[in-house]
Structure formats: structure tokens, C-alpha cells
Nucleic acid binder design. Structure first.
Length: 788
DNA sequence: TAGTTTTAAGTTTTT
DNA sequence: CTTAAAACTA
């Protein structure tokens, strides 16, 4: 197949892949089935364009749907040619943000905008729709987001297709006006606004046409209408455009993805060529056959046949379990057994589920059984109260017109600024067209509120000085005089007594973290959460510290701040990316698996109501089928399908019926195991591991000794009488081993007295330290074994 | 008003 | 069962 003179990096490609890489001229649609090597094609194509076609890397734009995919693509393309690192590899949304920072002013948008996430949008909308129940506000927020996905503005006649209520148009209009006053954007704006600017400003469009000679789009089946328009506007007659996708893997209809985009590509991009990649290199034949037999039931599809390069293999195995706990145990057993006899490593395994909530059972069990795992996606980190507070302070610092951020933190901790005052300030700010910081200082209000507002604005102003004052991020500015000026001696209440803030003090690092630290301390937000920690044994300060650490890499100036906020909004998995791949089992939703592959895969919760969800019909049911297909085709060697007879949901145990997909699947390639051997010992009716007692794997002995050995800071044989008394009062002993549902195994480090009774300090085996008041001893802390 | 207690309501999937 | 909203008390 190799042609004379072909570069060696083309060698691994098959005929069709090679055709796709070498294709030039007309628009190209690559229909790439699951596991057909599309990533390989894209990265090779980028390298080939640079090396053989002499294309300037800077004039290549490659768009993906996740940041992970974008990073991965960049990494792999660079391996072939270092220059590929200069190509622009971004998600649609991050490209939109990049575009708007530079060209937003053409649509009246200041470059200092902050991106609102869904919660922020709902908060803004509920201040527009006063006295409207939250669910209704959420619904309208959803409609606005969909409208933007479909590239519809408040005046568009087609708006009724999204929501036919008359008031919707009006709400949408008000929302847009308010957003414009604030000067921020939502996710939809990141796509819609750039497309509008390009469309209405030919000279801008020309600049971009000159800049990008090549545009490639991955996962094109998940592009929405607005993204289609953006792509259209970015392309001139001379732009080489290449999109890659698979209609069978379109799983984001609910957020506006239009399969029509891919089906209609040949019409919208005249003269387009189509190349099909139908050779599957990932899965064995039975796995592919099982997956295909389900998605084949769909009507709206191009239809394709995938050939399994790998050939035969073991049949996918279907098992039934009494409930989700037994299901989890089954998975754990399989994995443990295989890893123990060295057939596989932890990282070869993935557990797939439909909803994020389903991961909890696996997490708890895996902690208990000491199975290393990582949960992909659904990082609730940035949704936590304390993190949201910190980000609101930063957002308000970046944009003093940010009403949502202002509302969130102006009275936290309480400064006597009540809802009435807040409302007045926001109204006055809108009518008087001055920002919220200025308005706060000038508006007539009560004495108490005035003082509180002054204090709050002072905090922001100090941070602003800290931020704008210098460019370098090496010098320690924590003792800056502006910091000292602020009155930090706020009422400390109980806090003063037990010195909570001192114990778990936030430490500033370098760069932007100096500014973040300054804000958290001076605003009193750090104190506020430190106190909560002390009472409930949470680790909010720890979380804030993590946020601080993340800010270290950004310069301590305005640009750094904007970048930091943008990256957090656009890449929720930011933290995970930086970590090195470890040998761990992957827990992941079906949606998140797109583009990934594992040797062995569990598809769990195959029950009506869970997967497919509720009574989905027609197009929605078809989408669930595609999701099933996506999940199944992740497996390279072995696929396990599991379902439960009953499931405990929302505290209630309900009987479950098998998933519709299990009826549709080709039974001739499935190995159904009917024996029921898992009325498992240790599982109780109320669904816990009540009778577990000690963990079977050495709850006693070595582990404990290791623990004591490592913690020489105390000597159990030299306890003072006060300490012994505390042990008695609290019911805990120093050195006591314990297990916590969320944090795993650990031991009691020390016990201290406080106004609210003894506080038990725990050090977990993963290094984390937590504390809890023994009085409110949560059952989450379970004593295990005897103490040394 | 601020903070606590009681009651009700709710769970896809995500850039 | 957990979280958010509503009602209540100091």
C-alpha cells in the first residue's frame, strides 16, 4: 500500500484513513465509526498539512468538544511534528471566548467579561422574574439556552419552536438586556455572539478567513445549529474544511446537538466528499455485534457496518443481581480477581453508569475493599458553596457590574446588608448606569448597611490594588500595606475561643493566589467557612486552599484573573488533567466515555427507568440507544452487562424491570448467566454493609501498626490524665482505626477539648486530615478492629 | 434581621 | 436519603 515517497508516519494507516489524510481541495466529511481510528486520522492530517503541504500551523484551527480531547489531540499531533503545537486546538466554547476577548467590543462587550455558568444564569433570571418559583425559572433558563443553541434571538419568529408561551420572548429579551448591562456572557453567547459578529462585520470575517486556511471539527454529530453557523462564517471559499463524526454516536441532543448537521453536510458545504471509516480496531467482533444490534433499531441513521479487525473474542456477559450493592460487589470481585492473578491492571477496567449518582455505591465499596479508582467528570468541586463564594469575590473584582456575584457575597459573612438594600443598589445601578461598587457607596441607605457596604467595597478595592500594582508574581505581597489597612478584627464569636482559623490557616502561594488569599481573608469568607469546618468536620478550608493552589500558576494581574476564571468555567476537569495517569479503575458516565477506550468495561444499571431513562420515546429513545452503543463500543476485550432486580432510590426500594435494550440486543452473541448466588452475606434489607464488622483483608495487624509507626507524634503509652479523660468523654481513643464512607480508612490522631465538647482529629490513609465534634459523631465514622 | 428549625421537594446526560 | 425552601424564634 505504501507509495514511493510517502512519509513513514502514514504507514500505520489503512486505505481509507490514508485517503482521508491526503484529501485536499473540496470540503470533506469523514464518517468515522466507533474505534475506526479517527483521532489518528486527524492528528496525522494536521502533521501532514504542515510537513507536506507547507501549511503554516498557525492557520490551522481544530475544534473538539472537550478540553481533554483538545489536549490529547495537541499532544499526539506534536509527536509527529513539533510545529503542530502552534496550531489552534480548542473546544468550540474556548474558541468563542478567545474570539470575544478580542472582538467582543464590536458587539458592545467589554473584554473583561466573566462567563456565567448555569447556576449563575438561574440566579440572574430569578432576579428578573421576581417571585417566580425556582423550577419555573430553571425551565426558562433552559429554554433560553436552547434558543441560543438554535441561533435564535428574542426577535426571531421561530422562537415559538422552543417555547410557545407569549411571555418567553419577553423574558428572553429582558435577560439579554440585563446581561448586556452586566457585561457578562453565558455558554450560548460564546458561540452565538462570534457567529453574529462575523456575519455582520465583513472586515472581521475577512481577517479570520485570512488567518485560518484549514478548519477541522471533531465529533461533528454533536455540533448544534449555532456552532454550524459559526463554522459557516469562519469558512470562506478558499478555506479547507474537514469534519469528522458518526451519526450513531450523537448523544447531546438534549443540549441542542443537531444530527442534521452531519446528515446535511454535503448540502451545506457544496461539493463535499465523503469518506467512510468502517474498519474497527478496538473491539472484538461479539462486542461490536452486540452494540450494533441495539443501535440498528434506530430509524434516523445513515447506517453502516463495522468490521472487527480483531476478530473473535468472549461474548459479552449479562448478569442479574439482587440490588445495586450486590451489583457493585460483583464488579469488585471480577476486577480484584483479575488484577490479583495479573491478567489485567486496575486501569484496564471501567465502570459505566447512566447517572452520576450511581457512582456513590461503587465509591464506598471500592474504598472499603481498597480498590484504587477515579471518578471522571462531575467534579462538584466548583459547585461547592465555599468555592462559589471565592469565585464570586473574584468575579466581582473582575467585573463590578456582576450582579449575581455581588448578590452572593455582599452580605457573607453578614454585614447588615439585607435583601432590601441589595435590591435597591442593583436597581439604582441599572437606572444610574454606574457599577455596583460605585452605587454601593453613594446610595442612601441605613447606617448599618452603609458601614457594611463600605467594608465590602474596601475589601474589593484592596484586592484590586494588589492585582493591578505589579506584574511579576515572585515577590511576596501578603504584607502589603493595603492588606494591613483592612479591618480584619471582625466579631469572631466562638471562633475566637477555639482559634479555628489559626489551626487551619490558609496559606497564600505565589501569583494570583496572593490576590485570592487576600480576598478570602479580608472578606471574612475564610473565617466563615473555617467556623463551619470546626463544627461539622468538613474541609471547606481545605477546598479553598486547593483553589488557592490552582491560582498559583496565573500571574497576579487582571489578565491572570480573567484567564483563571475562564479556565474554571470552561474546563471543570482542570484539576484532573494535571494529574498523571495512575493505575486506577475508572468510574464514569456513559456520556463522558466518548472518545475513550478500556480493555474491560461494565455497563451497569441496565434497567427500565435508569437506562433508558423513564419512558423515553421516539427520538429520545433513539438517543438512549446511541448512548448504549457508545458505551458498549468502548470495550476492547471484554464487556459485562449488569442489572438489578431491585434498587434503592431516594431512600425507597423499588423492583426493577430489565432494560428494553436487553430485549433488543442480539442474544446469539450474549452469554446470560442466570444463577443467583448473591444474596450476599453482609447485605441487609436497608441496603448497607451492616454486618461487615471488620474488613476481611487484614483490618488488624499490619495496617494499624504501620499507621502508628508513621505517626510518632503521639505516644499512646504516655497519655496524660487529661487526654485519657477526653478519650472517655468522646468515646474515641487515640490510635483507634476507623472507616469513613467518603474518605476511606484512617485513625484518630488526637482529641481536643472545645466549647462544644471534644473534637476528634482523624488522619486518613490517603493523607487527608479531618475533624469532627464527638457529640455529633456522625455514623459516617465507623470504628473498626480493636485499637492497637 | 439573623440564625435556627421544620417541612417539602427532587435527581439525566454537559460545554 | 439529601438538599432547598419556608416558617419560626430570639
Amino acid at each position: 500500500m505504501r507509495m514511493a515517497g510517502d512519509p513513514s508516519y502514514l504507514e500505520p494507516l489503512n486505505k481509507e484513513q490514508r485517503r482521508a489524510v491526503l484529501h485536499t481541495g473540496k470540503p470533506l466529511l469523514i464518517l468515522a465509526g466507533a474505534g475506526s481510528g479517527k483521532t489518528r486520522v486527524i492528528k496525522t492530517k494536521i502533521a501532514w498539512l504542515i510537513r507536506e503541504q507547507g501549511i503554516d500551523p498557525r492557520s490551522i484551527l481544530a475544534v473538539t468538544f472537550t478540553n481533554k480531547a483538545a489536549n490529547e489531540m495537541a499532544h499526539r499531533a506534536r509527536k509527529i511534528d513539533e510545529r503542530a503545537g502552534n496550531a489552534m486546538l480548542r473546544t468550540f466554547h474556548s474558541f468563542g471566548a478567545w474570539f470575544l476577548r478580542r472582538n467582543g467590543h464590536l458587539a458592545g462587550l467589554d473584554s473583561g467579561f466573566v462567563i456565567y455558568d448555569d447556576t449563575d444564569v438561574v440566579a440572574l433570571l430569578s432576579s428578573i422574574m421576581e417571585n417566580t418559583p425556582k423550577p419555573e425559572v430553571k425551565y426558562f433558563a433552559h429554554c433560553i439556552a436552547r434558543a441560543k443553541d438554535y441561533f435564535l434571538s428574542p426577535d426571531d419568529s421561530e422562537l415559538a419552536l422552543i417555547n410557545h408561551q407569549k411571555k418567553f420572548r419577553d423574558i428572553y429579551k429582558q435577560y439579554e438586556e440585563r446581561m448586556a448591562q452586566i457585561g457578562n456572557v453565558d455558554f450560548g453567547d460564546l458561540i452565538k455572539k462570534p457567529a453574529e459578529i462575523l456575519r455582520s462585520q465583513p472586515e472581521v470575517a475577512k481577517r479570520f478567513h485570512d488567518r485560518f486556511a484549514v478548519i477541522m471539527v471533531d465529533e461533528y454529530q454533536d455540533a448544534n445549529v449555532a456552532q454550524f453557523h459559526l463554522l459557516k462564517e469562519l469558512c470562506s471559499v478558499s478555506t479547507y474544511v474537514c469534519v469528522v463524526g458518526d451519526d450513531d454516536q450523537s448523544i447531546y441532543r438534549f443540549r441542542g446537538a443537531e444530527v442534521k448537521n452531519i446528515l446535511d453536510f454535503p448540502n451545506s458545504f457544496a461539493g463535499a466528499d465523503i469518506i467512510r471509516l468502517e474498519q474497527n480496531y478496538r473491539s472484538t467482533s461479539p462486542i461490536l455485534q452486540a452494540a450494533s444490534s441495539v443501535v440498528n433499531r434506530n430509524r434516523d441513521r445513515l447506517g453502516k457496518v463495522l468490521n472487527a479487525e480483531k476478530g473473535d473474542g468472549p461474548f459479552p456477559e449479562l448478569t442479574t443481581h439482587i440490588d445495586q450493592y450486590a451489583e457493585a460487589e460483583f464488579c469488585a470481585d471480577k476486577i480484584e480477581q483479575s488484577v490479583k492473578n495479573k491478567t489485567t491492571t486496575w486501569a484496564d477496567w471501567a465502570i459505566l453508569y447512566r447517572t452520576n449518582a450511581q457512582s456513590a455505591v461503587f465509591e464506598t465499596l471500592f474504598l472499603r475493599r481498597r480498590i484504587p479508582y477515579r471518578v471522571v467528570g462531575s467534579f462538584k468541586f466548583y459547585e461547592r458553596e465555599e468555592i462559589k463564594d471565592a469565585l464570586a469575590l473574584l468575579s466581582f473584582l473582575a467585573n463590578p457590574r456582576d450582579e449575581v456575584a455581588f448578590r452572593r457575597v455582599v452580605n457573607k459573612p453578614t454585614r447588615g446588608v439585607g435583601p432590601v438594600t441589595v435590591h435597591n443598589i442593583i436597581q439604582a445601578s441599572i437606572t444610574g448606569s454606574s457599577n455596583l461598587a460605585e452605587t454601593s457607596l453613594t446610595l442612601q441607605c441605613s447606617q448599618k448597611a452603609r458601614a457594611g457596604l463600605k467594608e465590602f467595597i474596601n475589601v474589593i478595592d484592596n484586592a484590586k490594588v494588589l492585582l493591578g500594582d505589579h506584574e511579576d508574581n515572585t515577590k511576596d505581597y501578603t504584607n502589603n500595606k493595603y492588606v494591613k489597612d483592612v479591618d480584619v478584627k471582625r466579631k469572631r464569636k466562638k471562633l475566637e475561643l477555639n482559634g479555628a482559623i489559626k489551626k487551619q490557616e490558609l496559606k497564600p502561594g505565589k501569583g494570583l493566589s496572593i490576590c485570592v488569599h487576600n480576598l478570602l481573608i479580608n472578606s471574612g469568607v475564610a473565617e466563615y467557612h473555617a467556623m463551619e469546618d470546626e463544627i461539622s468536620g468538613n474541609s471547606k478550608i481545605g477546598n479553598l486552599q486547593e483553589l488557592l493552589n490552582a491560582a498559583i500558576d496565573y500571574p497576579n494581574n487582571r489578565e491572570g484573573l480573567l484567564n483563571f476564571l475562564e479556565n474554571i468555567e470552561l474546563d471543570r476537569n482542570m484539576k484532573e488533567e494535571t494529574q498523571n495517569p495512575q493505575d486506577t479503575v475508572t468510574l464514569i458516565t456513559f456520556h463522558n466515555t466518548k472518545g475513550l477506550e478500556f480493555k474491560r468495561v461494565f455497563m451497569t444499571g441496565l434497567e427500565q427507568g435508569i437506562f433508558p431513562r423513564e419512558e423515553k420515546k421516539d427520538e429520545e429513545l433513539e438517543e438512549e440507544r446511541r448512548l448504549f452503543y457508545v458505551g458498549a463500543t468502548r470495550a476492547m476485550e471484554e464487556l459485562y452487562l449488569t442489572k438489578c432486580e431491585q434498587r434503592t432510590l431516594y431512600g425507597k426500594t423499588m423492583p426493577m424491570t430489565p432494560s428494553l435494550f436487553l430485549n433488543e440486543i442480539d442474544k446469539s452473541v450474549i452469554n446470560e448467566i442466570k444463577k443467583k448466588n448473591d444474596f450476599a452475606f453482609g447485605i441487609t434489607e436497608r441496603g448497607g454493609w451492616q454486618s461487615f464488622g471488620k474488613p476481611s483483608s487484614s483490618g488488624k495487624g499490619k495496617d494499624q501498626d504501620d499507621y502508628l509507626w508513621e505517626n510518632k507524634s503521639f505516644n499512646p503509652f504516655q497519655l496524660t490524665s487529661a487526654m485519657k479523660e477526653l478519650e472517655e468523654v468522646s468515646g474515641w481513643r487515640i490510635g483507634q482505626r476507623l472507616f469513613h464512607e467518603n474518605h476511606g480508612y484512617g485513625g484518630v490522631l488526637k482529641i481536643k477539648d472545645s466549647d462544644d465538647g471534644p473534637i476528634v482529629y482523624v488522619k486518613f490513609d490517603n493523607g487527608q486530615e479531618k475533624s469532627f465534634l464527638s457529640e455529633y459523631q456522625s455514623k459516617a465514622y465507623e470504628k473498626i478492629g480493636d485499637d492497637w
